[in-house]
């Protein structure tokens, strides 16, 4: 993995500032809209088969009246040491040269081993053929494959946007700019509080690289489930709570 990382030209990643997240769900619906995610019906929630490539988790802390709720957006962490990759028997999930953990739909045979092995529960299985009333199909994004039944899917960092911007830049002889909204995933563009930042960690001048550099050295930065060594490409910035002084870190 380390060798691959050396030769990579880009390393897409995200920084999520938990101090700003309000839990408003704008990212969740933006993702649904961009990526042709099937409508999560009531039964899907009840069977715990709802698909949300990005979700906002809510953790309770304390008892009434000293009660806090903490919000945290969770999506595919695009691990450099991804536990989902080695278990795929058909090589449908792999790490590409731009640091993305990629799911190839046409290769997937639906063993669901990867979802089992994902510590972040960021992979979702299509238990049903996706269904929309005909008129709603007009909205579907033609740049994204509609996944059929039996296929595993997950956050792609909106790779269709990356591809589009890269192709345009190449055709017009330009470079891909950091912070280009056409490049950013739908969730990043939606966020009202600018909780989410997207960019290339390999580019030392990118916003995310600077934030990662600053925050992971004595700052607020951490990786989710750092201890299992997945080496993720999503950096979380700790929530600030000055009342948390007594206990350095509160289990949420």
């Amino acid at each position: 993995m380390a060798e691959l990382k050396q030769t990579q030209q880009r390393q897409w990643g995200m920084v999520i500032d938990l101090d700003k997240c309000t839990g408003c769900q704008a990212c969740v619906v933006a993702c649904q809209s961009e990526n042709n995610i099937p409508i999560n019906e009531e039964a899907h929630y009840n069977q715990r088969r709802a698909i949300q490539w990005i979700r906002v988790e809510r953790y309770w802390e304390g008892e009434f009246p000293d009660i806090k709720a903490r919000f945290m957006p969770v999506l595919c962490q695009h691990c450099d040491n991804a536990p989902c990759e080695p278990v795929c028997p058909v090589y449908a999930t792999y790490h590409n040269t731009e640091g993305l953990n990629v799911q190839v739909y046409n290769r997937c045979v639906g063993t669901r081993f990867c979802a089992n092995n994902c510590p972040y529960h960021a992979r979702f299985f299509n238990f049903w053929e996706p269904a929309w009333p005909n008129s709603l199909k007009n909205q579907l994004n033609p740049d994204v494959t509609v996944r059929s039944r039996g296929i595993m899917e997950k956050c792609t960092f909106c790779v269709q946007r990356i591809a589009r911007v890269k192709r345009k830049a190449k055709n017009e002889g330009e470079t891909v700019n950091d912070g280009d909204r056409a490049l950013s995933p739908a969730c990043v563009n939606a966020c009202p509080t600018e909780t989410l930042f997207f960019g290339d960690f390999k580019d030392p001048n990118s916003t995310v690289a600077k934030m990662k550099d600053k925050e992971t050295h004595g700052g607020r930065g951490y990786h989710l489930l750092e201890e299992i060594g997945t080496d993720t490409n999503v950096v979380y910035l700790k929530k600030v709570d000055k009342h948390a002084e007594a206990k350095e870190e509160v289990h949420a």
Binding site: R70, R220, L224
Partner: peptide
């Protein structure tokens, strides 16, 4: 029907936390 527990809890080692909190900015 709710999103909570649609995904199982993230498994953490003892002493490790999901949402980390710091008193200082």
């Amino acid at each position: 029907p709710k999103a909570e527990n649609t995904n199982p809890d993230l498994a953490t080692d003892e002493g490790q936390h999901i949402v980390k909190i710091t008193p200082k900015d």
